[in-house]
Structures are given as structure tokens and as C-alpha cells.
């Protein structure tokens, strides 16, 4: 294909190529199957302004290939398959689909809870990390918006009534326990499945390895303040080794050391435009300050006064002339 496939993602940290599981999944699968995918670490979810019925959601990753744009990792992987990069996804074996669902139902809620619901993790790690990555106005409301969205997901998953988080502490306490219990169970199952082999299905990494890696790597590497699951994962040597193995083989350079983005021509242009806008905004601010504090006087008032005066005298002249006319 003439057009290059591009993926806009969250940037990395703590030795990960990206901090987000969904981005990691696509990146890992692309690496495993040799897809020439260009990774652009934009950290700007507004580019993917997606309207789904009733809710407006902005999210990363965004996959672009010519005119086609996808947000869902499943669509992206199917697209790779259509481009003949790997036939494995189309006819992947039954087990990997089942394990994928297990990771999504059992491990994802635990990750979600640790990141977004646990107040200390969110305030001290997740929120600052995202705020640092996001561009200017977004960093103030995007993390909070996502947190509310995740809260809603967990609440509906457990059939909780009410809207506020503190409404029913007992329930949240239970949810916390339940989420970690299922997450732990899932880790145990995965560890049993992996056994002593290098990858989950045979000698080479497949689709299922990408899914599992993308959930385990953030769990292991991102230093959260309170995370029972992380301790459990570190205590499971074969899974920990699996994560290290994938990171070493397929993402050898620590991404923080490398300049994150090779600036594209388009991006250079956009940054020039941004600089110009910033300068303009600065100048405007300075001007407003100077005017409002009286350092620079704009003689609009005086102009108006003289205008009024001339108008008044003109009206007076007119009346006088009329009165003269009436008298005659």
C-alpha cells in the first residue's frame, strides 16, 4: 500500500512503549507480526473525537490508514489481517479467543479499579502522569472526565444504584475486594496456562500474547502506591519473566531515551502555527493589561466627547435655525 499506517498513542514511561493497555495491545501485535506501523505519540485524545450515542468520548489509540480511521483494537487487528500482514488473527485458535475474553472480564476491572477508583493511586500517580502528557487545556478536565466514565462502568457492572462514589462505602469496599480476588484468580490461571513455555501458544508470540502482555506490562511497571495485584504478579515468576521477555525482544530501547516523535512535516507546520497563536495571545494579554492599568491611553473617550460636543452644537444650531424660521 502506498499510504502508511499510522497509530496515534499515549506516550510511554517506566520502560514501557506506551502506558495504555489498548495502545500496547496494537503496538505489540504489530511488532509480533511485522506490520510496518508508524507510532505517533501524540498524547492528544481530542483528535479522535468520537460520538457514540449520547456520550461524547475522546480516546486513544487512533489508527489511520489513508481514509480509514479505527478506534477499536479489534477493527485494527482485522485491518492488519485484510492487508495480509498476518493470517493468524482471522483464524486464531479457539483458546486465544477464550483467554482474551477472560483477560477482559477478569483482569481489566482490576486494572481499572487500581488506576481510576483507588483515590490515592489516582491523585498521586495517574492524574499527574496524564496531566503532564496531555496538551494544555485538556490536562485540566480529561483525567476527571475519564475517571467519571470508569466509575460509571464499574458501578453498572456491579449494579450499584446512585451516582456518587461515597454514597455507599460498604459496597465499594466489597467491590474492591471482589475486583482484586477475580484479578488474582485470573493471574493464577494465566500463570498455569503459560507454564514453563516462552509464549502462550507455541514458540512464537501470537495475538493472545499481545493481549496478555498489554495488560500485564502496565500492571507490573507503573509504580502505583497501593496495588496488591502488582505484588502478586511479581510473585508469579513465569508471568513476570514473560513481560520482561517481550519488552526486551520487541521493545528493546527504553522509549524515554529516544526522542518520542520524529517530527513529521505536518506536525512541524502545526507547531509553527501553535507558536504563532501563543505569541498572538501573549501580545493581546499584554495590551489588555497595559490599557486596563492606564499605562497606555487610548483616546476613544476624548474622541467620543468631542464627537458629542460637535453633535450637540449641531443640534443646537438646528433648533436655533428652526426657531428663527418659526418666528419669521
Amino acid at each position: 500500500m502506498s499510504k502508511q499506517m499510522k497509530l496515534e498513542t499515549w506516550s510511554g514511561g517506566w520502560g514501557l512503549p506506551s502506558i495504555d493497555p489498548t495502545c500496547l495491545e496494537i503496538m505489540a501485535y504489530a511488532k509480533f507480526s511485522g506490520v510496518p506501523l508508524k507510532i505517533v505519540r501524540t498524547d492528544n485524545p481530542v483528535n479522535g473525537f468520537m460520538k457514540s450515542f449520547g456520550t461524547v468520548r475522546c480516546q486513544l489509540p487512533i489508527f489511520r490508514h489513508g481514509e480509514t480511521v479505527y478506534y477499536d483494537p479489534k477493527d485494527v487487528l482485522l485491518h492488519f489481517c485484510k492487508e495480509n500482514y498476518n493470517a493468524e488473527f482471522g483464524q486464531r485458535c479457539a483458546d486465544s479467543l477464550a483467554y482474551e475474553q477472560m483477560v477482559h472480564t477478569r483482569l481489566s476491572p482490576a486494572l481499572m479499579h487500581a488506576w481510576w477508583i483507588d483515590e490515592r493511586n489516582y491523585q498521586d500517580v495517574i492524574r499527574p502522569t496524564l496531566a503532564k502528557k496531555l496538551p494544555f487545556p485538556l490536562n485540566y478536565f480529561y483525567p476527571g472526565h475519564t475517571q467519571r466514565w470508569m466509575l460509571e462502568r464499574i458501578r453498572l457492572h456491579y449494579d450499584l444504584p446512585g451516582d456518587s462514589k461515597d454514597e455507599d462505602n460498604e459496597n465499594w469496599e466489597f467491590i474492591k475486594k471482589d475486583v482484586f480476588r477475580t484479578g488474582k484468580e485470573c493471574l493464577n490461571f494465566l500463570s498455569l496456562k503459560l507454564g514453563d513455555s516462552e509464549f502462550f501458544m507455541g514458540e512464537s508470540p501470537r495475538f493472545i500474547d499481545a493481549v496478555i502482555f498489554s495488560h500485564l506490562a502496565p500492571l507490573m511497571r507503573i509504580p502505583l502506591i497501593k496495588n496488591n495485584l502488582q505484588a502478586h504478579l511479581r510473585a508469579t515468576p513465569n508471568l513476570a519473566k514473560f513481560v520482561d521477555r517481550v519488552l526486551q525482544r520487541y521493545f528493546p530501547t527504553a522509549p524515554e531515551d529516544v526522542p518520542a516523535v520524529v517530527p513529521l512535516p505536518g506536525m512541524a507546520e502545526s507547531s509553527r502555527r501553535r507558536n504563532f497563536l501563543i505569541c498572538l495571545a501573549g501580545l493581546a494579554l499584554m495590551w489588555i493589561y497595559a490599557v486596563s492599568h492606564g499605562h497606555v491611553r487610548v483616546n476613544t473617550n476624548r474622541l467620543k466627547m468631542t464627537d458629542l460636543q460637535t453633535l450637540e452644537s449641531a443640534v443646537e444650531d438646528f433648533y436655533e435655525a428652526n426657531e428663527d424660521g418659526d418666528q419669521t
Binding site: Q101, N188, F189, L190
Partner: peptide, 18 residues
């Protein structure tokens, strides 16, 4: 066996989910 048990769990998640 243990592996079969975890396989069973995985397939059960698949059925619930899909």
C-alpha cells in the same frame, strides 16, 4: 488438571461475555 481448569474458566468468560 490445573491447565484444564483455567481453560474452563476462560471459555466460561467467553460464553458470559459474548
Amino acid at each position: 488438571s490445573d491447565v484444564e481448569k483455567s481453560d474452563m474458566r476462560a471459555y466460561m468468560s467467553l460464553v458470559y461475555n459474548v
